[in-house]
Design a protein around this nucleic acid. Structure first.
Lengths: 203, 203
DNA sequence: AGATCCATGTAAGGCGTTACATGATTGC
DNA sequence: GCAATCATGTAACGCCTTACATGGATCT
């Protein structure tokens, strides 16, 4: 599932410009799938070439010349097929957690900054989601799926916030800083602690 | 923060081979930062060229010829500097949530499969984490940071599981399938519902 | 008048993923 | 003997990110 598919999906809700799509992605998928203009416009060009969408120029109007994209029947069919065949992955890439993992190598002040900033970001995103909540916002997205995905995001962020709030003390109390007085952990032991790992592909 | 940095970080725990590093990443960062051999070996080669690590061949021994990597002083210094300067991001890319968002376009059976499989995966990862829990596993990683990062991952997965369990009914009850009887949502309206979006970069 | 929004694109580069290639050793 | 584990690497490809380039319209 790439940006092209996401565009097809978004266009099931109606015609839109590349610019609209970006905004839509921020509102509807901000917590689970971001895409920038640098991905969207090339994606739309390819989709047009594949006849999965059609482009219609809308010159007059307010603002600069726009290009309204429209989902074709083939495009809709392809999207539905895609939905049935992709294996739904859920990946987290968190430099934040890596940093925290190594908090014993961090100056306490920096650690606090990192923690505070992360809490702030969570608060911010939560507020943003609140603002375009499916049920009450104008231009509602009423589908049960949209509500579920939204609620999921909110649940995750709330849980993250709670965890940080209730556990951050454990990071600061355990006298850290530049103190190298711990008996070194052997990496190889840790690596082999759990042998047969089903669940992680090679590559 | 890329795979190179992660390797430096792991090597603060002691010397290791590329193979060990992969295992270590799975155990310690499986829930927040995965890396495959295709990233790790090139990363180690570059780090060696930059003199941030040194490689020592260990020929005899059991198994094939191994290369033990060792963090140099410069490497350690660079890692510490990195920890202080990187901005800690936390990104989620979830095709799962996208799929669920569009559940009204999915056959109910497929939806259930997707949900069940995701629950299964959560359960699996939870079990895996349980197995290499910092406190009780051999080769313990005793740092408060490691415990925090671990607990965070567990909290997220538990929250996800609970959310899916308690809300999945809302996806199935609302008669979906191939029923196109809803008044169409205008995408442009949704896109513009929340205007000034602080928090998402352009690009 | 200046900032911000609307709007569309291109180009290079970065980084990771996937697939391929190889081979010894250990356990069943 | 066969499968799995240990072990190291390469090469191509894919996809996104970042930066650049441009310009009218609206709001303050």
């Amino acid at each position: 599932m790439d940006v092209k598919d996401l565009c097809l999906g978004a266009l099931t809700y109606g015609d839109a410009t590349g610019y609209d799509l970006k905004k839509f992605f921020e509102n509807a998928f901000g917590h689970c799938f971001l895409a920038g203009y640098g991905s969207i416009y090339p994606a739309l060009a390819e989709l047009t070439a594949e006849k999965l969408v059609t482009a219609r120029r809308v010159p007059g109007q307010a603002g600069p010349s726009r290009k309204l994209y429209h989902l074709t029947t083939a495009g809709r069919r392809q999207f539905l097929a895609q939905l049935e065949t992709v294996e739904p992955q859920h990946k987290v890439k968190s430099e934040f957690l890596v940093l925290v993992h190594f908090s014993h190598l961090l100056p306490p002040q920096r650690l606090n900054e990192v923690l505070d900033r992360h809490l702030q970001e969570i608060e911010q995103k939560l507020a943003l989601m609140e603002a375009c909540e499916p049920r009450k916002a104008r231009g509602t997205l009423p589908s049960a799926g949209a509500r579920f995905a939204f609620g999921f995001g909110k649940a995750m962020m709330t849980a993250a916030r709670e965890y940080i709030r209730t556990h951050r003390h454990s990071l600061i109390s355990g006298g850290n800083g530049t103190n190298p007085s711990q008996k070194p952990t052997r990496l190889r032991k840790v690596a082999q602690a759990v042998s047969r790992n089903r669940g992680y592909p090679n590559a």
